[in-house]
């Protein structure tokens, strides 16, 4: 994985082995610091690549796009997925149950769900992003275009021509 000289690579390997115990500080846009295990932080591809590039692990990572409330929730997910094993059927079931409860709770607060989704997108946490976008996708099932605009705060910008097109397609049906 590590690039650069052999010595640096060896050092990186050694660090890699230690990574379970290494701690990483994430700072929200409100300046609040969260200390997490590296395994937890590595759930985020964004942070992972910064760590692997030999980045500023000691200085911590400021996250100007994420507020404290959202970050706390995102870390909750990362801790569960980063620090726990998922080898046996039982362990996987426990993780699946965690995800289910996690998303059910988020689902109750749309604005917060969107914040977590955007944070997962920004931090490239694939599992979390899949979880939240799937949840949102399920909530818009069967909605009309108007309802979808409302759900996502989309501005109506279709021209008369677009509407004509849609109508045109209608008549084919």
């Amino acid at each position: 994985m590590a690039t650069g000289s052999g010595a640096a690579a060896a050092a990186a390997d050694a660090e890699e082995k230690e990574s379970g115990s290494r701690m990483i500080t994430l700072t929200s846009n409100e300046g609040k610091a969260f200390v997490v295990t590296e395994a937890s932080a590595r759930q985020s591809a964004t942070i992972r690549s910064m760590v692997d590039d030999g980045g500023c692990v000691d200085k911590g990572f400021p996250l100007p796009n994420v507020d404290s409330k959202t970050l706390a929730r995102v870390i909750q997910y990362c801790d569960e997925h980063g620090n726990k094993e998922a080898h046996t059927v039982d362990e996987r079931a426990a993780l699946a149950k965690f995800d289910k409860d996690f998303i059910a709770e988020l689902d109750a607060d749309k604005a917060f769900l969107y914040d977590v989704t955007m944070a997962a997108n920004y931090l490239h946490i694939q599992g979390l992003f899949a979880l939240t976008t799937q949840c949102i996708a399920d909530t818009i099932k069967g909605k009309t275009p108007e309802e979808i605009r409302t759900a996502f705060g989309i501005e109506y910008d279709l021209t008369a021509q677009d509407e004509e097109e849609i109508k045109e397609e209608d008549t084919h049906a």
């Binding site: 955007m118 976008t133 996708a137 979808i148 996502f152």
Partner: peptide, 27 residues
């Protein structure tokens, strides 16, 4: 609340064909 459109596209992908078409008629 609003979501960036690139994320809305990802959500649309995860829905079903009908919902996807309705998304396509949203903006």
């Amino acid at each position: 609340p609003a979501l960036p459109l690139d994320i809305v596209v990802e959500i649309a992908e995860r829905s079903d064909p009908i919902t996807l078409l309705r998304c396509a008629a949203a903006c």
